[in-house]
Amino acid sequence: MSYVIRRVLQSVVVVFGVSIVAFFMLFMTGDPTEIILGDGADHMTVQQIEEFRVKMGFDRPWYIQYASFVGNAVRGDFGYSFTRHQPAFQVIIEKMPATIQLASIAFVLSLLISIPLGVLSAINPHKPIDRISTFVALLGQSIPSFWLSILLMLLFGVKLKWLPISGSGTWQHLVMPAIALAAFPIARNMRLTRSSMLDFMQKDFVRTARAKGISEYRVVTSHVLRNSLLPIVTAIGLEAGFLLGGSVIIETIFGWPGVGREIVQAIGSKDFYVVQAGVITLALIFAVVNLIIDLAYSWIDPRIGFGS
């Protein structure tokens, strides 16, 4: 049980760290008062600017500001978005379903393709299936996702006109962003599955399994694959972060109305409260997913006990 508590505490520390970064982001870019007021400051008197500064609390020492920032944040109050004219947190929450939809489809897609391909490669090393999937994986890992996105748009959207280029609403809108987002995890997980499988196939206990006279299918599934999943599960935990982070670019390119695009727009309009709310919410989701994966890990691998 103490393992669970320790992992939860670690996650809290991570989110706390992200909150510090998100908070000081506002200061690192200059005087927050002027950033928020932007061009509007030109039309204000010095006194009006000072009044605004006091009203926003930017005149207080940084640690007091930070304390009140954290205090408000835990209650879901990240300030008021002056471009959307609603609470910043609400802006993010409203965009969340779209992001989660895209990320989870990409996630499922990546697992459904990468693990079977990795297994097939590993049990047929240096055969055509292995060579083809290794080549595809190489492409998937080396092509930047924004470039892949543009290629997909040109091919399926502009030339073949099979799929809508951007926006949301139908399942067709999801196809290209999901593929673009999943390409890298597919490639990486496939290679990971393959190498992990090949590694475990050399293990003594696999030889023991063969010596028992069980079918080769059983040897591969219940002995090799089951053990190979351990490193893959760890990678999947990190993938959640990648999918959430990667969605910033993909959502922007495909005009997908999610948190990522919202953050990019908010940066453009210097709507810092929305940026902070978005970053911290994504960090929180990332930490929770990782926590779940870690607990799942100790469930798959009996050697990692909750007790010890």
Partner: peptide, 12 residues
């Protein structure tokens, strides 16, 4: 087999 530490499947 020789090494009972590695000859049994650790997760079974």
């Amino acid at each position: 087999f020789q090494d009972p530490m590695t000859s049994l499947n650790p997760v079974m």
